[in-house]
Amino acid sequence: MATCVNLVKLSVGTEDVAGLAAWQANRRAQTDDGLPRHVTRMWPKREAEILNGGSIYWVIKGVILCRQLILRLDERLGEDGIRRCAIVCKPGLIRVAATPKRAFQGWRYMAPEDAPVDLPDGRQEEEALPPELTKALADIGVR
């Protein structure tokens, strides 16, 4: 049986978790069956591990702030004929303890033991701090 692995991905152009949620509500960011998805050029080699309970952890303004369970990987062909991977996720963003993450291109694998913990249910709906303050607090270890 495959172990689990997560992905970590920059949410480029997103200001906060609400902005990511708003983008995912846009029809262009959804599959034909209405699920949120992110299209990327590279197909994960560790597909079985990702689909064994993995999540995508979203980096917003240099900080991992939320995650989504990955449901499946769909093939998409671009207008240029190039095969791409649509990472299809369960709707809804789960807020996690703010964790600094340096910029990188594409996505990266992340072991479950390295993943930030989910915020407790009572904190999932808290109003977010400004991104700069969230990053400064995360940099000094305050979550």
Rank of each mutant, 00 (worst) to 15 (best):
A2M: 10
C4H: 03
K9C: 07
T14N: 11
A18Q: 15
A18C: 11
A22S: 12
W23H: 13
A25I: 12
R27W: 04
R27E: 15
R28V: 13
T31V: 00
D32F: 03
D33E: 11
G34P: 11
L35M: 10
H38D: 07
H38V: 07
T40W: 06
T40M: 14
W43T: 12
K45V: 08
R46W: 05
I50S: 09
L51D: 10
I56L: 08
K61M: 13
V63P: 02
L65Y: 03
C66I: 00
Q68C: 03
L69D: 13
I70L: 12
L71H: 11
D74N: 09
D74C: 00
R76P: 02
G78I: 03
G81K: 10
R83Q: 06
R84C: 06
C85D: 05
A86H: 01
A86W: 03
V88H: 08
C89I: 00
C89H: 01
K90L: 05
G92V: 06
G92I: 01
L93I: 05
V96S: 04
T99V: 04
T99G: 02
P100T: 00
P100Q: 01
F104G: 08
Q105N: 13
Q105L: 06
W107Q: 09
R108E: 14
Y109W: 10
A111G: 07
E113T: 10
P116Q: 10
D118N: 15
L119V: 14
P120D: 14
D121G: 14
G122T: 12
G122S: 15
G122W: 06
E126W: 15
A128I: 05
L129R: 11
P130C: 11
E132T: 13
E132G: 09
K135L: 02
A136V: 01
A136D: 04
A136T: 04
I140K: 01
G141W: 03
G141T: 08
V142K: 01
